[in-house]
Each structure stands twice: as C-alpha cells, then as structure tokens.
C-alpha cells in the first residue's frame, strides 16, 4: 500500500480503499480542507464520505449542528466544522462533503469544504503537544502533523463532538 491513496470515488467507503493491513490503519488519516487550512482525522472512525444531501433542521442544537440527514435509514447529525471553529460561513458547493464517522458509538457527519486525501502519517511526524488548552479543557486538536511542506491539524473527534472545549451557551429564556 502506498502512503498516499487518492480518493477517486467519494461515495465509496474509505475503509474499502484502505486495504486489509490493520497496523497501518492506526497511522492513516483522512485530510480535508477548511478554507486555507488543512485538517485531518484518524481513518479508524470514518465510515464513509458522502456528498451534500438535504439537511433537516432539528431543535435544541447549537448553530454549528445544522440538522440531520437520513442515510439509508440511519439518522445522522451534521456538524458544520467551519461554524464549530467560528470560521466564516460559506455556501455549500459541489466540493462540500460530509465525512460520516462513528464517535463513541454514535454516528456524526462532519461538513467540510472538501476532502484531500487518505495518507499515512507516522507518529514521528506528529507533534502531540498542546492537547490541553489554556482553560484546562481538552483541546479539539490531537496533534499537528508535518506533511511534506504542509501542516495538517489532526482533530480529536470525541472532543469535537462532545464540546469538551466549549461551554454550551443556553439562551436565557429557555425553560
């Protein structure tokens, strides 16, 4: 298996493109774009990548949770990672994709500007410092990876999904 695997068919399960060698999966990351920045998540939790679908809004969610999609009978909440990181909102286009992941036994879809590649990043290339933010909460950043000339920010999906790093602002008038 080569270190870089281009995703040709976005709808194909990423795992299928990965080969069978389990040892490499731990070091495999799916990288994606948010504006000019490159981010990555470990491929272990990724179940598939799907194109944008009709989002159905649901109540009681912060703004960055855009709603749910019905993916073959599974209801999957969608997190707009741009909004999660308080980046400027951007219209979805044909590059916009949903990375469907299984995080702590529950499905979640991450809306990102576009996926880049699946690649192996050995632990030696990852700077793991800075996992605790100044406030003492766990950071969404699991590590900073050096990928050739570029830098990819590796995210911790469980912190991302649980809001471990931010307090949920409940509006005052809510019962």
């Amino acid at each position: 298996m080569t270190a870089q695997t281009k995703i040709e068919d976005m709808s194909a399960p990423v795992i299928a493109a990965m080969g069978e060698d389990e040892n490499t999966i731990a070091d495999m990351y799916l990288t994606f774009d948010l504006g000019e920045e490159e981010y990555g998540v470990s491929i272990a939790g990724v179940t598939e990548i799907v194109g944008m679908q009709r989002i159905m809004p649901i109540p009681d969610m912060p703004r960055y949770l855009r709603g749910v999609i019905n993916l073959r009978g599974k209801v999957i909440p969608l997190m707009d990672v741009r909004l999660r990181f308080e980046m400027p909102e951007r219209d979805y286009d044909d590059r916009t994709v949903i990375i469907v992941m299984e995080v702590e036994d529950a499905p979640v879809g991450l809306i990102v500007d576009g996926v880049r590649e699946v690649r192996e990043i050995p632990p030696a290339q990852i700077d793991r410092r800075g996992q605790i933010s100044r406030s003492g909460a766990r950071s969404t950043i699991a590590g900073i990876a050096q990928v050739g000339e570029r830098v990819a920010v590796l995210l911790d999906p469980s912190v991302l999904v649980s809001d471990g790093d931010i307090a949920i602002a409940r509006s005052a008038e809510a019962g």
Binding site: I58, P59, D60, M61, L65, V68, N70, G73, K74, V75, P77, M79, V103, E104, D105, A106, P107, V108, V161
Partner: peptide, 18 residues
C-alpha cells in the same frame, strides 16, 4: 429511532421518526 450521541441532548423527545 432512539436519539444517539449528540442528538440525545434534544429535550422533550423520545427519539426521531423516519
């Protein structure tokens, strides 16, 4: 369908209906 993960924070709901 039961509300799993993040969706379980929806108050006053049993689950979601397909």
């Amino acid at each position: 369908k039961p509300l799993a993960g993040r969706l379980s924070r929806i108050r006053a709901s049993y689950g979601c209906a397909l």
